[in-house]
Write a protein that binds this DNA or RNA. Structure first.
Lengths: 194, 194
DNA sequence: TAATTTTCTTAACCTACATCAAGTGCCGCC
DNA sequence: GGCGGCACTTGATGTAGGTTAAGAAAATTA
């Protein structure tokens, strides 16, 4: 299992000794999720934070009329979880599905909490990770309140340039908050305009 | 300055010794913000987290067509800041304004970071605070993607029952993401229906 | 209390995006 | 290598909520 990726990811915010690295990696649990399979489904209690080492996941909710809303994409080097469920340990509201064959490293909530007490640097790391997620989430809320679909799409292209090509466009439509039909029309319109 | 409120707020997640309480309170800076005055304005770098001891603040952004979008209300016992700016120390995107005469306790970013190293419990506290904000922000995003204005309004009533009465309704309209005109119509319609 | 500003309401009309429906192209699978 | 399904497109029509405008009511200020 490619531990370098996750250790480098930590290194962005905290520095660990050799020994601490070993404590940490011993807590991880590798797992493979095949395309179209689920790491977590609606109603299940989320027991793990997942770090993607290869492939790509998507987290989404399904509303009462059956429409899917993508909350996040997690390509390699990203963390993902149903935070609501992970924190409260109540049944979750997200499905986390593999868009392609994906490898993840799982860190259980219990182990994560052990890390907080054994190696306080982890509390620091996850505080920063959570802060960054909060800022991203707030920005997305602002965008959804104040931008048109087209502007949101342009933002998406800037922020996730690598995802654009190899993601089915209905997933992008769902992320920016429009139907696949409207998204298709919008793209055609954008080409026409230039 | 009413320190009890903020100490009780901390006590929800961490327990401090008498001495730690004193270290903490020494870092706080009380401030009064009169109705319609600003604690922070667009373009300014956010240097403080603010804890409201009485009154009420609102944080909002203004989009390019001049429309205000309320991101959060902060009545007594709430924390507020422009997280994007506080973290990055870049010019912020929020205005934070007093809806009525308000008392806050300011904790500077520098002092907050001192607390993280001097008393690690604070890192724990703010991690949890941030996690809860993240969940709330995600839920609001989901709501804005999948609920009608009427449903969002009902949610708002449930979540902030105390705010409803003494908040001008255009602020509520802005929070749930509709114009004051539509909000007014919607309310009339809701009365008609029952 | 009067004057002024701000908030709220109501009405006519408008637009971004959704829905429904039908057709085309393509990719994975037996 | 053919076929069943899924992704994408295009068109007609529907709708939630926006815009503009103008007056009524409420709250601040003088």
């Amino acid at each position: 299992m490619p531990l370098n990726l996750i250790l480098n990811n930590l290194e962005k915010h905290i520095h660990l000794t050799r020994e601490e690295q070993e404590t940490f990696t011993a807590y991880l649990q590798p797992k493979k999720v095949k395309r179209k399979q689920f790491l977590l489904t609606y109603g299940e209690v989320c027991k793990y934070s997942a770090f993607v080492t290869s492939g790509c996941l998507r987290g989404y909710t399904v509303d009462k009329s059956g429409i899917e809303h993508v909350l996040s994409f997690a390509p390699a080097d990203w963390w993902i979880a149903d935070m609501y469920s992970l924190i409260s340990q109540k049944p979750g509201i997200q499905n986390i599905e593999a868009l392609e064959d994906t490898d993840v490293l799982l860190l259980s909530k219990a182990n994560q909490e052990k890390l907080y007490t054994q190696i306080p640097k982890f509390e620091h790391f996850f505080r920063i990770l959570t802060e960054n997620s909060l800022v991203a989430s707030q920005q997305r809320l602002i965008d959804s309140l104040s931008l048109t679909a087209e502007e949101r799409y342009n933002n998406f292209c800037k922020r996730y340039p690598t995802l654009i090509d190899h993601l089915p466009q209905k997933q992008i439509a769902s992320y920016i908050g429009v139907t696949p039909e409207f998204f298709s029309r919008m793209k055609a319109e954008m080409v026409r305009k230039r």
